[in-house]
Nucleic acid binder design. Structure first.
Lengths: 217, 217
DNA sequence: AATAAAAATTAGTCTTGCCTAATAAAATAT
DNA sequence: ATATTTTATTAGGCAAGACTAATTTTTATT
């Protein structure tokens, strides 16, 4: 069993490993965790001893099979709890992350599976990130942004990429929430903006930035 | 904000304060937490400094207003999560305590209230213990054990007092679970045992110990 | 290749929360 | 009232996980 701190490192290495194409270095980890690089080196040593990572100055930190399993489990729980908090407790998009950050560390062998079942086996969390399955695999992150879709069609809002209060308040003002239906009326080639209409809203023109922040399907 | 450890001390002092008639002493706390008394003394000093308790060798540890609020909040979350785990995730009576022990430390100002609402404002947890309300008050713990009831009447199982695997397996074997209806057919004065019949079960004679472990209403 | 800049590492410290051992204080028994 | 036992407290240590400062190694620049 890992400590909270160890789990946070594993999670960070997992994310950095998937994201960046370059190696997962102590400085990168330190930056992500807002820790000191010296502390990171200590921890990398510890995680190496526990066979959760392989660390090599050249290649950076790499999760072992065991480490991947542990990290994916934490990410899985994090994202499942986010779904729970949003769907069941009616929390806002901007609040769920910090709470899930705590809940992901709750341990019990069947917890993730039971929660998954209770929530109806969701594939994505409310931020559009795929939820790892029990086997560690995850749905291909096939997110389409509103910006990419064709004019004239209807879509459903699946998630959002931006969780700033400003954006969320704007969405609220437009009557858009997760699950809302949107119709794309027109795409303006000039600046990437588009005219859309929410189920029970007026026609509005939204910016390219807006379009890129809304995930639909 | 308190650390996990501080929260566990507060919770323990809260419970010991309600239960026992005598003072909450370092040894009593140490025993409950399976800690060394010396460690307890350290922590009592710390909690005193934080104005969460008053400690006096004569009177023992007493929660301040602030301490009561903090402790009740933890207990509230613990018991609400127990209800969640049992009702929503279908965990067994014997498993929920340890998980709730972890979940009670998740912080967010509205969390308890939202969870409470989601669960339909339950008054008792699955072990029959009253759930503190948002204001810190709790329903009078008016638990009737099966042992105390009259013969000839029907009751509903509200909770259980004993959570040993042996007892829970026995219940399962008898087809009894939370919410089950029971009919008390006969009470045997000789040894306090009684003949009962579960909704879809046969007549069985159960011991006094059994009767005292089942809470009904 | 020499030098400057950035990254990694080591050494030493701090805080939290626990421990053991030793001592002081209080309660209980004789 | 004194001796014994129990309880509380102090002192000193330890491990985890963070930090700063100093040093070494690596990478980039000229």
């Amino acid at each position: 069993m890992q400590s909270f701190s160890e789990e946070n490192y594993l999670k960070t290495i997992y994310h950095l490993g998937l994201k960046g194409s370059d190696k997962v270095s102590p400085t990168a980890i330190a930056e992500a965790l807002k820790n000191n690089p010296a502390s990171v080196v200590d921890m990398l040593k510890k995680l190496s001893d526990k066979k959760l990572i392989n660390y090599d100055k050249k290649k950076g930190a790499r999760l072992t099979e065991k480490g991947i399993k542990a990290a994916a489990d934490i990410v899985r729980k994090h994202r499942l709890w986010e779904v729970f908090l949003l769907q069941k407790l009616d929390y806002g998009w901007d609040e769920i992350h910090d709470i899930a950050e705590q809940m992901e560390h709750v341990h019990h062998k069947e917890l993730a599976d039971r929660l998954d079942k209770f929530l109806g086996y969701p594939d994505f969390d409310p931020h559009g990130d795929p939820i790892p399955k029990a086997n560690g695999k995850m749905a291909q992150t096939f997110k389409t942004t509103l910006f990419e879709v064709e004019a004239g069609k209807k879509y459903r809002v699946l998630a959002v990429k931006d969780t700033s209060p400003e954006f969320l308040q704007y969405l609220q003002k437009l009557g858009i929430t997760i699950g809302s239906k949107l119709k794309v009326l027109e795409k303006i080639a000039f600046d990437g903006s588009m005219v859309i209409q929410a189920a029970k809203g007026d026609k509005v023109n939204v910016s390219r930035k807006f379009g890129e922040s809304v995930l639909v399907g």
